[in-house]
Design a protein around this nucleic acid. Structure first.
Lengths: 395, 395
DNA sequence: AATACTTCCTAAAAAAGTTAGAAAGTCTTA
DNA sequence: TAAGACTTTCTAACTTTTTTAGGAAGTATT
């Protein structure tokens, strides 16, 4: 790639993350000299990709001109998948959904047709948007499972029948005519929290994705850590309990057997059967896990004692796992994110309690535990950021 | 610092790690252009710091000139401390001990005079070497405890009475007139294994330091990971056991309560008291823990069943901890290093056994478990590398 | 032994970075 | 309120570094 194109991309990425920046700030962040930066910014303004947005307040000298991204110029197709539902949204570079979020039922388990379906969904989304392909930077997809982002494969859910020559990424790229990038859902949530959420600027942060399982995305030394094969963050299967509960991975006692929204629903069902009193009674369970999980978390937030107690139990178990993270990685912050963050700060007390009991005090005091404000939006933001990261990274 | 000085240091560092390199290789590694690299190398040759060492075998073209470091030009003072013993060695830049390794008893626990003693030991070592201070790049010190290398403090063993204004590093620097750098012993062992040992080129590697405790140094994305406050790697205090054994940290069930050379000695003593048969009988325990630990490991290596069984037990427990590391960080390799590596490959089977039982197979197969060949030498090498890292890092 | 093909090294041209100073502002003090 | 001191942004001249093209010194193949 030509160098000036490379610099343009770096500048675009920085403004994408920061919303509005001056030339001096840009020069600092991309590590290039001011004259070169200004020249490139001027090119981008001439191409209508950037636009001046007035003057920043002076810090004691001449006021700098600031720049923002022209939101009609470029777009990213952002995709978030779980085992049942796939969400698709075309986003501009100010993180707005251009035409709403599409929601599609697409089971991944033992579904060799999944990839074909996904490809049509993506192509449709692009076509229906009416936006020219040349103005879409790429497609970013977050999905559960063991993902090798470099190769572009999902080892847990192949989504094909196994006879094909093409990887998931290759298939989708040829089907859509756009660059495609995939990564693990929890990793992308961590990326979103680091770039746009509560972990902004926390160069060492652990993002716990409380959902149908318990995922972990790690920000280490200011970048997403993926491990040697892209498999880092298998938080949910560390052996922590002597509960003899068989886990989906074949072992027993995994963290996941005691902590996930599925466990939350299970516990609620059993508790009600045992005669516990709760505002859930009458309309629970519905059988739709999305609704059921939300009901419990909303009831807890509204003060339902039974539901609060359930969250306490699970939160405490998560905290035991988090204690291990803190010992090993000494992070600046722990962020609770994903679907489960709907229950908000109800998680904090039980998690903190576990840390008090299981962490060396000197370590525990160095780490803040926080709840995401991005919530269910996080993964779509992370998918978009994934595209931008790849767009701006020299090949 | 002037730029050409900076480039010289980068080049010196690369040759220090690789022993001998050609101009092209150097250019690649320091990320500078070939003309600039060659010019700087020529300067270094003129200053007698580098010297040409013949031609490298051609890979299909003109044979490149290779360069090595003149071993009489520059030196590093390398220090390795544990709670009882401090070792000091002046090393040249080919990792040879210039005048042997000095061994000094220096207890760190509740010893506010320790720093003063250390300062004289260091000054003596420099003076007795007869080498001019200007030719010593600096002093690197590995020590146990919570170390903040940036600030230059040891929070576990202050080594002063607490009324001083100067940090450990500041005190030693003024006392010796040389740049001083400190870091955690396990971190430095990891650095040594990564730069000179079996983990060479393994950009994601976990180095377990089996000694009087169980330390962990982590190489992540090709560099030593220290966490947000320099406290990362507190492997020994993750809660893994329901054994009700009180740990020095105040909690119970820590990994350290079941795995360390101290535990090994304890178990041997108890086993012999219970009438177990072993070649240790008669000359064990001596009360000197260094000797006792060595006796057990040597007996095991010589085939003593009782000692092998002890190592199996402890190795299995270490393996349970390592399983957690693998789940979280998906490393390329696990290296068993430190004092305990004297028992060599006897560790491998029990550790691997624990991994088979506690790891998801897909993850376990991605990680190799290996024993260090550096052994007790590792920490001194790491201390030297610490100096070189700081020497070549732009301020 | 001659030709094709690599790779290392060097010299000239192009690109990027540095530096000094002008422009445009803020803040303090008389 | 006005003048002067001080900051910071931005620009133009100069310096450093990188890139490119080509010559030198090898290896492998025919």
């Amino acid at each position: 790639m030509k160098k000036d194109e490379q610099y343009k991309r770096l500048i675009l990425r920085e403004i994408y993350y920061a919303n509005t920046l001056s030339a001096t700030e840009l020069s600092d962040r991309i590590g290039k000299s001011l004259p070169l930066t200004i020249r490139t910014v001027n090119h981008l303004v001439k191409e209508k990709i950037l636009e001046p947005s007035g003057y920043a307040p002076s810090s004691g000298g001449r006021r700098p001109i600031t720049y923002t991204i022209n939101r009609k110029a470029l777009y990213i197709l952002s995709v978030s998948m779980d085992q049942l539902v796939t969400r698709i949204s075309l986003m501009d570079l100010t993180n707005s959904h251009v035409g709403g979020i599409g929601r599609h039922e697409l089971p991944l388990k033992n579904n060799p047709a999944a990839l074909k379906v996904l490809a049509t969904l993506l192509a449709d989304a692009v076509n229906q948007s009416g936006i020219d392909r040349s103005r879409i930077l790429g497609i970013g997809i977050g999905m559960p499972g063991f993902i090798d982002g470099m190769r572009g494969e999902n080892y847990s859910f192949p989504m094909q029948d196994g006879t094909e020559q093409q990887t998931i990424v290759e298939y989708l790229a040829t089907a859509t005519g756009l660059p495609v990038h995939i990564d693990n859902d929890s990793s992308l949530i961590a990326l979103a929290e680091y770039k746009f959420g509560i972990a902004r600027k926390a160069a060492n942060s652990m993002v716990v994705n409380i959902g149908w399982g318990v995922g972990l995305g790690m920000i280490l030394n200011g970048s997403l850590f993926r491990g040697n094969n892209g498999f880092a963050g298998e938080f949910s299967h560390i052996p922590l309990f002597n509960n003899n509960k068989l886990c989906s991975c074949g072992k027993s006692g995994c963290l996941e057997t005691e902590t996930s929204l599925l466990v939350l629903i299970d516990k609620a069902v059993k508790g009600l059967q045992d005669g516990k009193i709760s505002s859930l009674q009458g309309h629970f369970p519905t059988g739709e896990i999305e609704k059921d999980a939300e009901s419990i978390m909303e009831a807890a937030a509204a003060g339902d004692k039974f539901c609060i107690e359930l969250i306490r139990e699970i939160g405490y178990h998560i905290g035991r796992g988090v204690a291990i993270l803190i010992h090993l990685l000494n992070p600046r912050s722990i962020v609770l994110s994903g679907r489960g963050s709907l229950a908000g700060r109800l998680w904090l007390a039980p998690v903190q309690q576990a840390l008090n009991e299981h962490c060396i005090p000197r370590l525990a005091t160095q780490t803040a535990v926080e709840v995401s404000g991005l919530g269910y939006e996080a993964e779509l933001l992370g998918s978009a950021a994934l595209v931008m990261e790849n767009y701006a990274t020299p090949q």
